[in-house]
Computed example of a mutant assay.
Amino acid sequence: MAKKDKKAEKAAKPSDPAAMNRRQQMVETYRMTKRVDPVIGWLLLGSFLLAGLVGGYLIYLIPPQGTFGLVMAVISGILLGLLAAMIIFGRRAQKAAYRQMEGQLGAGARALTMLRRGWKIEEMVGFNKQQDMVHRVVGPPGIVLVGEGNPQRLKQLLAGERRKHERVLDGVPVHEVMVGDGDGQVPLPRLVKHVRKLGRNVKPAEITDILHRLKALDSQRPKVPMPHGPMPTSMKGMRQNLRGR
């Protein structure tokens, strides 16, 4: 009976990261990271001890010393150690998530969800029978068309999407980005940073108007479901925990 109760309890736990609380999201993110990065536990422990000891010692050297100075050094050491461990954890978890997504269909779209507020992502606004796809990002740079798939086929697909968007968005900059490791492509781990660095050509008030004008274009497209391959189960939690780091 006890074993059955435990199994039922596990089954009752929310599997959707959006339904998890902050602690559950952190635990799930750690589990995901450990599968890809087995030494993450030792790295976190080492960074906590090193930053805590060094930081605590430096704080202890600041007068006044004695019992009060020792207490302040211990508290400061713990806080500095936790801060260092969280920074290391955030970076390693993000790298692990990208490593899990690389090579999967739709990985670029999932990576783009790490963008902050103020960005609107539409998955698979363009596609072909070979499963090459184009995603659209609307944000400060204007329109960013992100292509995934064969580079040669993507050039034609991106060019077609550019023409469609320029017809309904006269004067709005349209950028083209191809995800990959080849020449002229952007590696998946650098995709979000690359998109953010495309500049600020559109004011926040103009983005609402752009989205409204895009509705007419999108209404003419066939609805195709986004392929759901294996992906980090805690990606939604990571967006909340690691956004902006």
Results as ranks from 00 to 15, higher is better:
residue 125 V to K: 01
residue 3 K to T: 12
residue 50 L to D: 03
residue 128 N to R: 10
residue 93 A to N: 01
residue 182 G to H: 06
residue 187 P to N: 10
residue 43 L to R: 15
residue 157 L to N: 06
residue 182 G to Y: 01
residue 185 Q to V: 07
residue 147 G to C: 00
residue 48 F to V: 03
residue 208 T to H: 05
residue 62 I to A: 12
residue 6 K to T: 08
residue 245 R to Y: 14
residue 72 M to D: 00
residue 143 I to S: 07
residue 151 P to Y: 03
residue 33 T to F: 04
residue 187 P to Y: 08
residue 48 F to Q: 01
residue 46 G to T: 09
residue 45 L to E: 02
residue 222 P to G: 08
residue 43 L to E: 07
residue 36 V to G: 02
residue 216 A to D: 08
residue 54 V to N: 05
residue 24 Q to W: 10
residue 124 M to A: 03
residue 39 V to G: 06
residue 116 R to C: 07
residue 108 G to C: 02
residue 150 N to L: 07
residue 169 L to S: 03
residue 219 S to G: 15
residue 22 R to D: 10
residue 210 I to S: 04
residue 229 G to T: 09
residue 110 R to N: 05
residue 2 A to F: 04
residue 10 K to Y: 03
residue 129 K to W: 06
residue 14 P to C: 04
residue 134 V to M: 07
residue 184 G to Q: 00
residue 60 Y to V: 08
residue 22 R to M: 14
residue 53 L to Y: 03
residue 10 K to V: 06
residue 65 Q to D: 07
residue 170 D to C: 02
residue 189 P to T: 12
residue 95 K to S: 09
residue 7 K to E: 10
residue 73 A to N: 03
residue 106 G to K: 07
residue 50 L to N: 04
residue 37 D to Q: 14
residue 223 K to L: 15
residue 33 T to R: 07
residue 238 M to S: 09
residue 65 Q to Y: 01
residue 109 A to K: 09
residue 69 G to N: 07
residue 18 A to V: 13
residue 107 A to L: 04
residue 41 G to Q: 08
residue 203 K to F: 03
residue 150 N to Y: 04
residue 148 E to A: 05
residue 149 G to M: 00
residue 216 A to T: 14
residue 40 I to H: 08
residue 200 R to C: 02
residue 28 E to V: 14
residue 7 K to R: 14
residue 36 V to Q: 10
residue 127 F to D: 02
residue 170 D to A: 15
residue 101 M to T: 00
residue 194 H to W: 06
residue 237 G to Y: 00
residue 213 R to K: 15
residue 131 Q to G: 03
residue 215 K to H: 04
residue 36 V to D: 04
residue 9 E to K: 13
residue 170 D to P: 07
residue 8 A to I: 05
residue 223 K to H: 13
residue 166 E to Q: 15
residue 61 L to N: 11
residue 196 R to N: 10
residue 59 I to V: 15
residue 70 L to E: 09
residue 37 D to E: 13
residue 58 L to Q: 11
residue 143 I to E: 11
residue 6 K to S: 03
residue 90 G to V: 09
residue 236 K to V: 10
residue 82 L to N: 09
residue 234 S to Q: 11
residue 245 R to L: 14
residue 213 R to G: 04
residue 57 Y to L: 14
residue 175 H to M: 08
residue 226 M to D: 08
residue 213 R to H: 10
residue 85 A to L: 09
residue 31 R to H: 05
residue 244 G to H: 07
residue 99 R to H: 11
residue 20 M to S: 03
residue 16 D to C: 05
residue 145 L to F: 08
residue 156 Q to R: 10
residue 6 K to D: 06
residue 232 P to G: 01
residue 206 E to M: 11
residue 9 E to A: 11
residue 31 R to W: 02
residue 10 K to S: 02
residue 52 G to Y: 00
residue 174 V to I: 15
residue 209 D to N: 09
residue 25 Q to T: 14
residue 33 T to S: 11
residue 45 L to K: 05
residue 66 G to W: 13
residue 163 R to N: 02
residue 205 A to Q: 11
residue 24 Q to R: 15
residue 222 P to A: 14
residue 208 T to I: 11
residue 221 R to E: 10
residue 190 R to G: 02
residue 167 R to G: 01
residue 53 L to M: 11
